[in-house]
């Protein structure tokens, strides 16, 4: 279906000029906040700006009250809705490539081959065999998954006596996430493929067939589907059974001219927001693939998406510095 024929919510979008590459779009309380490529954080639906970093923001995450950003200035900074910033980590200029937030206020970040974790018990670090590709905390138990070349390492930062467990799979592993029940760990690879492990026994799940590298992946609210980019449509792998997608075919929804660049799943309903490489932004209903237009294709790729916790608003941003909020 061409974008012009799709029912539209574009009238409910409040657009704003972010000014540079939007790295992340989140909600701090009720209002949208954006992390930008030039080191700024944009707050209060875009009405307030603060310089959080002296260089690019490389990664960002939010706990709902603060926006955590890591930069090529070697700092990890938390910014609240009022614009107050706090430097949590100063890595002496070395790029902080990735960060992740965990249960109980845990924070993890990586600098090259070193993963760091900060918990209530203090700071710990772990050297990996190669550069860290991604970080994700398990939903429970302060366990950190760290991807790297030839696999992922599972580490309990609060239990230094426990040897980190290594899940091996040949190739370079990048972004990583756990299923909401913690049973599965999924990584996106340098090849156009995903790899999954069942955490309990290391059972492998290969998810292949993508035309391009998968840069965005997320589980649906009920945990039954893993949604992924990497094609001109959203690829959905079934995770409803104990074997995950092993031996099953994926579903596809939202086919368009351009590739899916980024996606996020609605926090409550079976709806996915999918941003495309041509700037198109759609809401897609899982049940039947029905699409609603949020933004017409224009300019650069959609590079950031975030739902408000109540699912009633969606913030977005693009590579060429456009941003906006959809209020439902």
């Amino acid at each position: 279906m061409a974008a012009a024929e799709i029912p539209s919510l574009a009238a409910k979008v409040r657009a704003l000029e972010a000014g540079s590459h939007v790295v992340a779009a989140v909600f701090l309380g009720e209002s949208a906040a954006y992390a930008l490529g030039e080191g700024e954080v944009l707050l209060a639906d875009g009405s307030k700006r603060t310089q959080a970093h002296a260089g690019a923001i490389l990664d960002a995450a939010s706990d709902g009250s603060r926006l955590f950003t890591s930069g090529d200035d070697g700092k990890l900074v938390a910014t609240n809705a009022e614009g107050a910033t706090e430097v949590l980590v100063d890595g002496m200029g070395k790029w902080i490539d990735h960060l992740a937030l965990g249960p109980d206020g845990a924070l993890a970040w990586s600098v090259g081959k070193t993963a760091h974790a900060r918990t209530k018990k203090g700071d710990r670090s772990l050297e990996l065999p190669s550069s860290v590709g991604g970080l994700a905390f398990a939903p429970k138990g302060l366990r950190l998954a760290i991807t790297h070349y030839n696999g992922a390492t599972l580490w309990f930062p609060n239990a230094p006596e426990a040897k980190p467990e290594i899940l091996v799979w040949k190739g370079s592993h990048l972004s990583v996430l756990f299923s909401a029940d913690g049973r599965f760990l999924i990584s996106s690879m340098q090849e156009p493929a995903l790899h999954g492990w069942r955490v309990a026994d290391g059972h492998h799940m290969r998810m292949t067939g993508y035309p391009a590298r998968v840069r965005s992946l997320a589980f649906t609210a009920d945990g039954k589907w893993l949604a992924s980019s990497g094609a001109n449509e959203v690829i959905l792998w079934p995770f409803g059974s104990k074997d995950g997608p092993t031996g099953k075919e994926p579903r596809m929804i939202g086919r368009q001219q351009a590739r899916v660049a980024i996606l996020v799943c609605h926090p409550k309903q079976e709806v996915i927001a999918a941003g495309y490489a041509d700037g198109l932004l759609l809401l897609l209903r899982l049940a039947d693939g029905a699409a609603i237009l949020v933004r017409q294709p224009e300019g650069g790729a959609v590079s950031a998406l975030g739902w408000r916790a109540d699912g009633q608003a969606l913030a977005f941003g693009t590579e060429d510095g456009k941003a906006g909020v959809l209020a439902l």
Partner: peptide
């Protein structure tokens, strides 16, 4: 960091660090 692509070909190698660094640089293009 030279990474082999997981496609069975020993000469299909990429520089993993370059991919990461260029991804970062592109945020300030």
């Amino acid at each position: 960091e030279v990474f082999e692509m997981n496609n069975g070909c020993v000469c299909c190698t990429v520089r993993g660090d370059l991919i990461r660094i260029i991804d970062g640089l592109l945020k300030r293009r």
